[in-house]
Design a binder for these strands. Structure first.
Lengths: 281, 281
DNA sequence: CCAACAAGGAATAAATTATTCAATACTGAG
DNA sequence: CTCAGTATTGAATAATTTATTCCTTGTTGG
């Protein structure tokens, strides 16, 4: 950062060749990374020794030193730009696509803490921690989220049950009792099978947590605690992925909070033992 | 940023000397700026040539290349920290945890494009686009990724088959033919059942794509195209999640690329009709 | 136990960078 | 206008840094 300013500041009191060098560097700071002093000399049309002298005149030890400084400037500049200007449009298709995606994702994830009050999250964590069993359900895309969450809870030694077949899920629900808890995941919050499960939970007085898109829907209304993931990207392809990832992300946050709550020593041991078993052929 | 993650991710499979080098670099990333390869060698207690080989093994052109990358990492890290620490430090536990998690996630996702050359991604997309069937397999955590990818491909109208039971997966594999392709997902890249599938694919001359952590492993070696997700967060809880999410993210990128490649009009219609059906009670 | 192979370091080659020095151009005083 | 003094530049070269080669050693798998 400072480096380029320094060069710019000395432009006036420079000789012709020095000035050419300075201009080139200012215009192509990002290219310098892959230039040797000789290449830079050629690009500007001067000698390699002049390049080195130029560097020393500016107060740097030598060419690599200047190069490093310029690189630093480029990076801080681009980092700040990414933070501020949000997206770099210029790049090619693939990179652009990915960056746009990652940016949207980032926003969606950051939004999670805003639409789910801290207290809600802690309540859910408490509920999960105290439950003797957790029934997780979700079908289709939400099945992936449900599956993921089941895996996390099992990793914590918490009995989590789920089945991707709705009928089986209902059967599993019959094994719950008043100390159990149900976590229903749905993008729309309108899935019939999930609503059946919700109704069943009400009848049996089983605590119900919902995880849906952020809009009023039957499932979240029925739930004791409602968790939400942002929706609403305009891209038809990307939006469902973002919602799903936001849901997963929320689950992961819950998982991490649960980890904190537990006494870790005991659990870490169990994990490492399990890993040992898993890693053996 | 990515550079240090990359190094961390490969820590396990490093020899003693390499490991010493890696540790030193990770601990003293900010010092590297002023070290020559010889100085680094002396500091670690090894030979200059080993330093260079270490750099090349990590995929860099040579020592200056690694040095530059490390420098970049140091700078972006410190820049981002400055941006973030103002807010996140003050707040309470929950917010801090989440922000730390999101920050790590962000880094890992950004790294994907760096460790998977663009050409590789496009090759995979081509392969998937041309395949008549795709067999996806992954067990445990990777099963979630596999499941997710299956869902995406089906959404595109691409026949994707998978089963969470290894024996069933093998049975499914027998339905493949030379126009098919296999996508095997594994964190370690050492899962026995997946390796069986890989061997079977080799015999039947079925193209094989692997998706594993970024380190040499049996699966990626056997694959025609190897995709990688960064690993190596020091937090035992968070690291598996990051790897899984990175894998999913990579799948999502492939999905989006496939979307672009297809003629969208036709497909969008199919999707919307399917959505209509799904949304009806 | 041996062959095959990988890892590491010493030696050396290649490259990059820094310095020296001579040529040229410019400046200002006489 | 001229000439000494000075600054600028680049060619040549020295010095340093980096990359490669090759050989030793140790390890693994048969």
């Amino acid at each position: 950062m400072v480096c380029l300013l320094k060069i710019r500041g000395m432009l006036q009191q420079m000789s012709v060749i020095e000035r050419k060098l300075a201009d080139f560097i200012l215009d192509n700071a990002h290219l310098l990374r892959d230039y040797s002093s000789q290449q830079l000399a050629d690009a500007v049309g001067t000698s390699q020794s002049s390049v080195v002298k130029f560097c020393q005149k500016l107060g740097y030890k030598g060419y690599p030193d200047l190069k490093l400084a310029v690189n630093e400037a480029v990076i801080t500049a681009s980092t700040l730009n990414r933070e501020n200007s949000e997206q770099s449009q210029a790049q090619n298709d693939l990179v652009g696509l990915v960056e746009q995606f990652q940016f949207s994702l980032h926003s969606h994830l950051r939004g999670i803490l805003e639409i789910n009050p801290e207290k809600t999250l802690l309540d859910v964590v408490d509920g999960l921690a105290q439950a003797d069993k957790v029934l997780i359900a979700g079908f289709g895309k939400s099945g992936i989220v449900a599956h993921d969450m089941q895996f996390r809870l099992l990793q914590l030694g918490k009995l989590a049950i789920m089945h991707s077949d709705p009928a089986m899920a209902l059967q599993l629900a019959s094994t719950l009792n008043s100390g159990s808890i149900m976590l229903l995941v749905s993008e729309s919050g309108q899935n019939t099978d999930l609503l059946k499960l919700a109704r069943y939970a009400k009848q049996r007085q089983i605590r119900l947590i919902s995880l849906t898109s952020y809009k009023t829907n039957a499932l979240s209304m029925a739930a004791d605690i409602a968790l939400f993931a942002l929706s609403g990207d305009e891209n038809v392809r990307i939006n469902p992925i973002l919602v799903q990832l936001a849901q997963q992300h929320l689950c992961h946050i819950l998982y991490l909070l649960l980890c904190q709550q537990q006494n870790n020593d005991h659990q870490l041991e169990a994990i490492s033992k399990l890993l040992n078993v898993l890693e053996q052929p």
